[in-house]
Structure formats: C-alpha cells, structure tokens
Amino acid sequence: METMSSTVSMPFPRGPTSYDEISMQQSMLFSDSLKDLRNLRKQLYSAAEYFEFSYTNDDQKHIVVNTLKDYSVKALVNTVDHLGSVSYKVNDLLDELVDEVSGTELRLSCIEQRLRTCQEYIDREGLSQQSLMINGSKYHKRYILPVGETVQGAIHTKLNYQGCNLDDEDDWHQLKNAIRSTIGDTPSVGIKGRSPSPSPRLAQQPGNFSFSGTITRKDLDKRTMSPLRFPLLRSGSFSSKPNTPKSSRPTTPNRSRPTTPNPSSGRQQYILEPRKSASMRIYFEKESPKDIEQSPSKSKRLLKALLSRRKSKKDEMLYTYLDEY
C-alpha cells in the first residue's frame, strides 16, 4: 500500500521553455507511466500476499476484509488511470508519426511532380529541337495540280509545301504584281510576233498546260487584260463566275457541243473548286508580311529591272522572261 502511493505521486515539472524541453518532459512522463505499470503487478501480488497472511493470522477479519476492499478499489482506479494515460500517450505519439509521414509523403509527391515537370520540359525541348531539323519536300506554287488530281492531293501538296523556301514565291508574287501594274499602265500592244501563248479558254482551266493553239483577236484582247498564262490569277475570276454560259467562250475546242450546260463541265467545276481553294489557301498562308519582308531587296531589284525594260522591250521581253520562269 505504501509503495503504491509513493510511486503514483510524481514531481510536477516546471514550465517548459522550448519545444525540445516539452518533448523531453513528455517522454519522461511516458517512461514513468510505463514504469509504474510494470511495478503495479508486483505491488498487487505483494498486497494479495499481505492480505492473505493478515486474514489467516489476525483475529479482526472484518477489518482486514474492509481494508482489502478499499485497496482493491483504489488499485483498480489507479490501474485504469495509468492505462488511460499510457494509451493516450501512445495514441498521440502514433498520430504524430502518421501526420509526419503524411507530410513527408506530400513533400515527396511535390518533389516527384517537379521532377516530372522538368522531365516533360526536357522532352518538349528535345522534340522541338528535333522537329526543327526536319525539312519538307519543296514544290513551287505555280505548278498547279493536274486535271485528275483530287482534293486530298491538293491538301497533301499544301502540307508538303510548308517547309519550302519563300524567296521564289515572293519573287513570283512581286513579279505578278509588277506585270499587272505594267500592263495596266500601258495600252494593249499587239503581240503577234510572239510565239506560242495559251488561249484564255485554256488559261481558265487551271489544270491545262497546253501552250499550243490558234490565237484570235479576242484572245489577244483578253491577254492584254491578264497576261499571265498560269491559272493562279485566273482562278479568282473563275470561281467568282461559276455559271458562265458556254456561248461566252468562242474559242472552245469542241464547237459541236450544245449550248445547254454540260453535266461533265459542272462536275469538272466541282472538282476544280477545291483545287483552287487549296492553292489560294497556300497563297494566303505564304503571303504573310513577315515573309514578304524577308526578301524585299531582291524583289525591288527585280521590279526595277522589269520597269526599266518596260519602255524599250515592252511585253515581248516580259513574256520571254515569264517563259523562262
């Protein structure tokens, strides 16, 4: 009884000053509680032996029984207190460890996410570096698709056209503008001495490259309006008037055709329509101001050369120049 009461009473600690001292005091209290729980069994065994000896030897058994009852109640309450305190401390310690592990998991997840972000950035940079080294096949814009080509072919051509050099296209565009301005300023001059030139009927068909044929006076007048034989410029007017009657084209090769609209011609227009749009799309995509600014000096020199020769040689030299290109 005396030993039990002496072990329960513990000195009250002084006020803590830092986190280390608090944790140290808590650990000391926890170790004292565990030590008391270990000593409790010995105390209970010694108390049982004492009460047994007193009950057998002492005459006042009633007093011994009452004392035993009081001691057993106090011992049970004390044991419950010790077990509650120890279990609470163990539970608190486990919760602290679980929280610490959860915090460590969170920090580790953050580190992994940062590492993954760095890896993705490195992969993207490497992919961009590798993609810049790929060069696509080069096609010039003025090579219009043949007649039997479909829209997929035009799109494929457009896709393959992405990586080609822009200098020739810009020069070609500047050349076309210069020719337009030049022909627009000067009156129409006969070009009878000029060798082969396509008829407007053939020029209106973007897929036809025939350079042979008879030239009429009407064709020459039309040529003065637009000297380019290539259908890229004509395609705009061609699409703006899709329902042009056949009678407006007197130089059609097949004169025996009826005046009613031919279904095959309508189908041909339907086939040619996407081709025009594809070429125009390429034209507008490649005609960005940035691309034009890249080669201004070369185009200006070309224009100056063309304009200087305009008065002397006029359109003959121009068409020969176009034939060369």
Partner: peptide, 20 residues
C-alpha cells in the same frame, strides 16, 4: 482493443514508411 488499434496503426505506419 487498444492493442488491436495500436497494431493496426503501426502496420499502416510501417507500410507508409516502406512506400516512402
């Protein structure tokens, strides 16, 4: 009951520590 709960918590904690 306290032993079971504490063992369960310790097992979870051990698993988390292994994963970590």
């Amino acid at each position: 009951q306290f032993e079971a709960t504490t063992k369960n918590k310790l097992a979870k904690l051990n698993e988390k520590l292994d994963t970590l």
